Simulated assay, not measured.
Amino acid sequence: MNRRWDVIAASLLAAVASLAGTGSAHAQDTAQIATQGNGKGAPPCLGCHGVDGAGQAAAGFPRLAALDATYLRRQLDSFADGSRENPVMKPIATALSSEERQALANYYSHLPLPPTLAHPTAPDSRGALLATRGRWSQQVPACEQCHGPGGVGVGAAFPPLAGQSAAYITAQLKAWQQGSRHNDPLALMQHISKALDEEDIKAVAAWFAAQPLDHAETTP
């Protein structure tokens, strides 16, 4: 087994250990859902989000590792109740019990930041302006005002943008814009996304995807 798989295996064991004693959904059961599914309609999470929770950039599947547990639980609930529309995630979320959703949220929040995300590429200048200064002529604040410096995330309401792929960030901005996602606090993202054009979205998504995670907290 090479070093990468040693790191991944250690991460999974640490996550399982951290969940010991959390509710009636046992730690081992949670790891089994992540790696094998729950046998009740929910496939293994790793099929899309990777064994280390890093996601798949090319396919637009997001990073789950080290995200806030409350945020992750809210997204699973939103997929199930339709406030976040997604034809792939809706049947998966509805196939998970309330306890399983919470257990998975805790599981992924305890996984460390994947090492493959530590040194992304250089940022885009147009995206940098939107991310760090905003565009006040259209009442668009800087993204960093809510999502933190470099997009590292702030609590359960404002998730990390750094370390997510440009494809995923782009898809979410368009989902806010088109109304297929509407589980944002005070409809903030619905307003902001509608003020952005195609080039704005492409630029700001690329900028956040390029931000390093070396300085990010393990649990944003």
Rank of each mutant, 00 (worst) to 15 (best):
Q102Y: 06
F79P: 00
G39K: 13
S24T: 13
G41S: 09
G155M: 08
G134A: 06
S137Q: 13
A187W: 12
R133T: 14
R133G: 14
A131I: 01
A166Y: 00
A175I: 08
N106W: 13
P212A: 02
A95L: 07
A103L: 07
Q164D: 10
G151H: 05
T219I: 10
D197M: 06
M189D: 07
T132G: 10
D29V: 00
A57Y: 08
T35K: 09
A14V: 03
V16F: 06
V88I: 12
W176D: 00
Q36K: 15
A25N: 11
G179S: 07
P185R: 14
S109M: 01
P185F: 13
V88Q: 14
A59I: 04
H49N: 02
P149T: 04
L173I: 09
A105Y: 04
G55M: 09
D77N: 14
P212V: 06
T35S: 14
A9H: 15
Q145H: 11
Q28E: 01
V154T: 03
A209H: 04
A209D: 05
A65H: 03
A10T: 10
G153S: 12
L46K: 12
A34M: 04
V7I: 11
G55S: 10
Q139N: 15
L188I: 14
G55K: 08
I192S: 10
A42C: 14
Q139T: 08
G134T: 04
G151W: 05
D77L: 12
D197Q: 02
A122R: 05
V88S: 05
H147I: 01
L130P: 02
H215T: 09
L113H: 02
Q75D: 00
S11H: 15
Q28D: 07
L104I: 07
C143K: 05
R73Y: 11
V204P: 04
A69I: 09
A162N: 06
Q177Y: 11
L130E: 10
K202S: 07
N106M: 03
A69K: 05
Q102H: 10
D197S: 03
K90M: 11
